[in-house]
Amino acid sequence: MGNLRTGHIVEAALWLGLCLFLYIYSFQFEKEIEIYKFGASAWPRAILLLIAVAAVGQLLYNWKKGDGGATSMIAQAHDDSSKGSDHNSLKWYLWTFFLLALPFIYMNLPEAIAGMMSLEKPGLHSAKLIVAGIVVLVYILTMRGNYVGGILALPILFGAFLQDFGFYAMAPIFILGVMYLFGERRYKRMVVIGLGLYALLMIFFVSLLYVGLPTGNIGWFYDFGTTMVNILQ
């Protein structure tokens, strides 16, 4: 086994697995192009081959030198390795990936429910509200004690909510959430600075630059978004 650790083998297996998965999918676009004999799949497959070679090269490097140091001084300056971090256990990874899955559950589950129950638009909106509530509750319960996982998932959750609930309603909650996850606990200061940041963003982008931000499309979130646009512009 040389200097290999399980992590090295998992890392190489992930790369090789990705290559295999994408290689199988590449048959979907293995089509001839009249003026180009290599077709549409040669370039992507060459990249997959090189990834596989580099992954094996990295594995051999680990086998010979273990984790080793960064190979160059420049690389050492960029070494953000997780060594010495509390956020490196299997349990941490599992909970973090669970948190990261929550936004995608929200993005897919309401449509699936609406499809199964043949719901119209108002029904779909209700399903989205209920699923969003559950997702937020699960997020709050899960991220306690795992603030790094929480900060990784919160922006994606915010992005997933933008289409339905709009930037105008979601931004203040998002700003306060990020402050909390970064360790701020002085609630009065959080509210004052959070609202100040929100006002600055609104004035600069919406009032001065007329940037169109998502207003949302569900019930009073949409009404709130359009009212804000009318006031600011």
């Binding site: 090189l50 990834i51 992954a55 080793g68 190979t71 160059s72 420049i74 690389a75 960029h78 070494d79």
Partner: peptide, 15 residues
């Protein structure tokens, strides 16, 4: 050769 921890990870990044 810039920025990554090893040469192989540098190439994987670019790939």
């Amino acid at each position: 050769s810039v920025g990554a921890k090893t040469f192989w990870k540098g190439w994987l990044s670019i790939l």
